[in-house]
Design a protein around this nucleic acid. Structure first.
Lengths: 319, 319
DNA sequence: ACCTGTTATGCTCTGTTTGAGTATATATCT
DNA sequence: AGATATATACTCAAACAGAGCATAACAGGT
C-alpha cells in the first residue's frame, strides 16, 4: 500500500446538482459544443480534504459559485470501461456520485455550465401530462425485441418480467422510483447509445433515447433522481428547492416535477398539513386569475417532532 | 491524474458479512488476541478486477471460503483519521463498505475469522427481550450530560432534539432503523471509545459501550445493520439468510433478530402470507412440544408479481 | 349586480391497511 | 383426561389512502 503500488487509483467526485425552475427539474451540466454533456466532476485530493464530501463542496463552490444546501452520497462506481481513459493513462478512476440540492440563486455560473431539464436525458420518466409517447412507440417494441432475442427460454422469461416490473404492465403500475432499474435495463438492451459506446452491445438499434452523457454520468443522474424521488417521501428535502415562502400548489408542482407524476390536489394538501410540514404565513399571493392562495413556509420543527416527515405522494388517477 | 500524482489513493473494500444463527445476527470478523476486531477487508486491485463488487467477491471468496449470496454497496468513507496509517505510509485509504448476506454453510473459516453476534458491538440495539438496560443506566445519563455541556443554548437545543429522535422520548418511539444515527451520536458525544482513539474528544468518559472495532469498521457495521433493517421491509432479502424450508416462526425469529424488536405473531403471518412471500410445502416439523408447524418456502415468483415485496414489520407492543 | 371561469380550500365517503386481541386446533407430557 | 405449548384462523376498531363533491374568493365581462 504505497503511493506507487499497483493498487493505486484516483477518485473522481461527480455531482448531480439539482434545482427546480419553472416546474422543470434541472441539473447543472458541463456543456461543450460537439461533445456529450457531463456532470461537474473533479478529482478528490486526499491531502487537501478531510472527507470526500468536503472535497466535493470545495471544488463545486470554486467552479460553480453555488452554495450547496443538501448533499448526499449516492454510489461509488468502479467499472472499467465506464470511464474512458486517455491513451497512456494508467490509473483507474473510481467515481463517487453525489446528489446535491440548491436553490439556484447565484446567477453567475461557471463558463461552460448550464442548467438543463433532466427529462431531456430521461424522456420516459415524465408522466405529468400523460404516459410519454416514447414508451409505447419506441421503448415497448424495442424491449419486446430484447425479450424475443434472448438466447434461451428462461432468459426470455427473466427479461419479460424485468420489463414488466420496470415499465409496468396490465396488473402492475408505474413505479416512479425505479429510475435506475429502467436505465440499466435500457442500457443492457442496447437502447441507450452509451451501451454501444462502452462496447457492450451492437444491436444496431442506436435509438435516440434521451440525450447521451459522458462516462457513466447518465447512470449517476439516474441514481440521483431515484434517490431524490424516494427520499422526498420520508425526509423534507423538497424544501431545499423551495423559496422561503410558497403556495401549496407551488410546492405540489415541485414535488410533481421531481417525481414525474401528477398528484391529487386536495389529498396532497391534507398530507402536507396533517404532517405539520408547513405553516401558513397569513400572507397571500395575488394571482392573475383565481382565488389568492395563502403563502406557507417550511416548519423546521417537524424535524424534531416526527421521526420521518416527508411528502407522501397522493397520486392522481388519470381522469 | 497520473499514477504518482498527488490525487492518488488506495481503496479498501470492507465487508459486513452477515448471517443469522440461533436467533443471533452475526458478522464475520477478523479476531486477533489483544487487538480490536475488524471486518474482513482488502485492497481493491484496479488491474485485476472489473468492478468494485467483483473485487470484493474475489478476495472474500479466497479468504473466507464463503459464497456470498446478496451483496450491496453501503457507503464510501474517506475521512482522514478514521483509518490510521502506519508510520511512513503516505497514501490515503478510502474505504468502500459492503453488506453481504450468506447462509453460513461452509464450516471452514479463514484462520482468524470468527462469527460474532452483532449486538456485542451495539448492545443498545437489541430490544427483543426488553429495552436494553444500558440505555437508561449508562447512555441516558451520559447523553444528558452531553446536552448539558453544550457550548451555548441553541446547541443544547439541537443536541436534546437529536438525542430524543435517536433514542426516543415521551412522544416519540424507538425507530429500529436509526442505527447509524445513534452510533454517530454516541461517537460525537465521546461515548464509544473509537472517538477517543481518533482524537475527537476527551471527555474522560471512556465508557465501555459495546466492543470496539478497528478503523471505522463499527461505523460500517452500523450502516450495514441500518440498511438491512430497512431493506428487509421492501425487498425479500431475509430469505438469503433462511434455509430452503422453514416455519413461519423461524422466519419471524430471524426478522426479529435483525430488526431487534418483537413482532406480533398473527399479524406477521398475515402480512407474509398476504404478500405471497411464502408458500406451504405441505410438510410439517415435529417440535418437542406444541402443535407442529407447517414448513414454508420462499416464493421466488413474488419478485415478478409485486413491485416491492418485503417483510413489513408488525410490531408487538410491550405487554 | 350577476354570471362565468379559475384557483383555493374544506369536508365527506369508502375501501384498505394496520394494530391488537380472541378463539380454536393440534401436538406433548403427566 | 387435563395441563401446557405452539400454530393458525378470525374479528373488530382505528388509522389511512383514494376519489370526489361543495363551497369560497378572486377577475373580467355583461
Amino acid at each position: 500500500m504505497t503511493d506507487t503500488g499497483k493498487h493505486v487509483v484516483t477518485i473522481g467526485l461527480s455531482a448531480a446538482i439539482v434545482s427546480v425552475v419553472e416546474d422543470s427539474p434541472s441539473v447543472l451540466v458541463v456543456h461543450t459544443a460537439g461533445a456529450d454533456d457531463s456532470l461537474p466532476f473533479g478529482p478528490f485530493d486526499p491531502l487537501a480534504h478531510r472527507t470526500l464530501e468536503s472535497g466535493l463542496r470545495t471544488w463545486v463552490g470554486e467552479q460553480t459559485y453555488l452554495d450547496l444546501g443538501y448533499v448526499e452520497q449516492l454510489y461509488t462506481f468502479g467499472d472499467r470501461g465506464r470511464h474512458t481513459l486517455k491513451p497512456g493513462e494508467n490509473a483507474r478512476v473510481v467515481s463517487v456520485g453525489y446528489l446535491a440540492l440548491t436553490k439556484q440563486l447565484g446567477e453567475r455560473n461557471a463558463p461552460d455550465s448550464i442548467w438543463r431539464g433532466w427529462y431531456r436525458y430521461f424522456p420516459w420518466e415524465d408522466w405529468r401530462d400523460q404516459k410519454p409517447a416514447v414508451i409505447d412507440e419506441v421503448i415497448g417494441p424495442a424491449l419486446k425485441d430484447f425479450v424475443a432475442t434472448a438466447p434461451d427460454k428462461s432468459c426470455a422469461e427473466l427479461r419479460r418480467d424485468r420489463v414488466r416490473l420496470c415499465f409496468g404492465g396490465e396488473d402492475i403500475g408505474w413505479d416512479e422510483e425505479k429510475v435506475l432499474e429502467r436505465y440499466e435495463l435500457l442500457y443492457e438492451a442496447g437502447l441507450v447509445t452509451e451501451s454501444a459506446r462502452d462496447g457492450r452491445i451492437a444491436t444496431g438499434h442506436a435509438l435516440p433515447l434521451g440525450d447521451r452523457m459522458m462516462f457513466d454520468h447518465r447512470r449517476i443522474l439516474a441514481t440521483a433522481i431515484a434517490r431524490l424521488r424516494g427520499k422526498m417521501k420520508y425526509r423534507p428535502v423538497v424544501f431545499e428547492l423551495m423559496p422561503a415562502s410558497f403556495t401549496l400548489l407551488e410546492l405540489q408542482r415541485t414535488v410533481e416535477a421531481i417525481s414525474g407524476i401528477r398528484l391529487h390536489k386536495q389529498n396532497f394538501r391534507r398530507l402536507v398539513e396533517d404532517q405539520g410540514l408547513v405553516e401558513g404565513t397569513g400572507k397571500f399571493n395575488s394571482p392573475p386569475r383565481g382565488r389568492p392562495a395563502e403563502l406557507f413556509r417550511f416548519r423546521r420543527e417537524v424535524l424534531r417532532e416526527r421521526p420521518s416527515p416527508g411528502v407522501r405522494l397522493a397520486r392522481q388517477r388519470a381522469t
